[in-house]
Design a protein around this nucleic acid. Structure first.
Lengths: 185, 185
DNA sequence: TACAATTTTCATATCTTCCTAAAAGGGCTA
DNA sequence: TAGCCCTTTTAGGAAGATATGAAAATTGTA
């Protein structure tokens, strides 16, 4: 029986390592740094509230690094601080709902990356508009530029409005996915 | 009239610069390197077939760099080589359809990032299955790990099957967007 | 308030990624 | 096949991103 327990612990450990490594790679997809992703992966897979020391030890990274990345994770909303009575340490635990996590990340990225792009694109369009160019707007080159900026703007505006609708909560996301899945039958 | 033409050229130049800079930032969102993105941005906004020398000059980057990034762009399918009769230089031109470009990028990322993740996740699930763990599968920790891996797997499988359906061509993407937009009314 | 336990900050060090310049490669044309 | 023109590859270096560790700040307790 003892041997079995040790065995189990090892197996879990192994799966955890594999999972953390996986999350590490997934960081680039989510637009977060690898270490931040690893910490989150560890918290997600274990499902436990861990202290900084736990994390330092399990991932072999320094205290400062853990501290900085944890505070980013908390800021993103993927992880929250929890306290244990009679213990002065802070503990951290991951959200457990995959949909919710995904939605949070998607929203962050939208706000931080898509929105500024839209602003710039609108300005470009402005600068190429007939009002700004006057008679020169007739020029072939100007028209081509205008057309391309506009195409892109149309596309991204659409993406943005859908995101608005479906990504503002994880319920919205579920709804969207169900809708699409249904159609796929 | 002359002054106007010069003026127009300057304005277009300015918009191009702004656009290239924008694309540069967008690189991270698409998962391509900033320079690769800038080159593509330039080709997209000008709508012209440019030579390596043109690109080197307009973006101020070295020949080797342009060469490497162009070949990646061609590999991704975002840019294609074109030849001009009586000219030994290669020229490069971007796709013009925004939907098509987006679909290409999405597919690349799926293949290169999501698919490997799914493979790993399935292996993790395997290792945590009752078959692999036997009686130990009853342990609370094992069950929690299993549940979490499984949640994620379900989520990503769904994403993957939707992507299969809707991202395999840009027509599919349009279809999906229309469906969602409709529902949003 | 003083002390001890934690966490955060920040200057420094390390690592990775990207870029360049130069050399090698490939293919026309004469 | 020699010479030219253009492209690709590569080794090394520069810039940027990340991690570290120790000092400073914060927090809770007596």
């Amino acid at each position: 029986m003892k041997a079995q327990k040790i065995d189990l612990a090892q197996r879990l450990q192994h799966v955890q390592d594999e999972f953390v490594e996986l999350w590490n790679n997934m960081g680039s997809l989510w637009g977060i740094s690898p270490t931040m992703a690893r910490i989150h992966g560890l918290l997600y897979i274990t499902g436990a509230a861990l202290s900084m020391d736990d994390i330092m030890e399990k991932l072999g990274i320094s205290r400062g690094n853990v501290s900085m990345n944890l505070s980013k994770l908390v800021e993103w909303g993927l992880v929250r601080r929890v306290h244990k009575r009679g213990d002065r340490k802070d503990y951290y635990e991951s959200l457990s709902d995959v949909w919710e996590m995904f939605t949070l990340v998607a929203n962050q990225r939208k706000r931080r990356e898509i929105d500024p792009i839209l602003t710039t694109l609108r300005r470009c369009k402005e600068e190429l508009s007939p009002e700004a160019l006057g008679a020169q707007a007739e020029a072939e080159a100007a028209q081509e530029h205008f057309r391309r900026v506009n195409e892109l703007l149309k596309f991204l505006s659409m993406v943005e409005s859908l995101a608005q609708r479906f990504f503002e909560s994880h319920r919205g996301l579920r709804e969207a996915v169900e809708l699409l899945a249904q159609e796929a039958d």
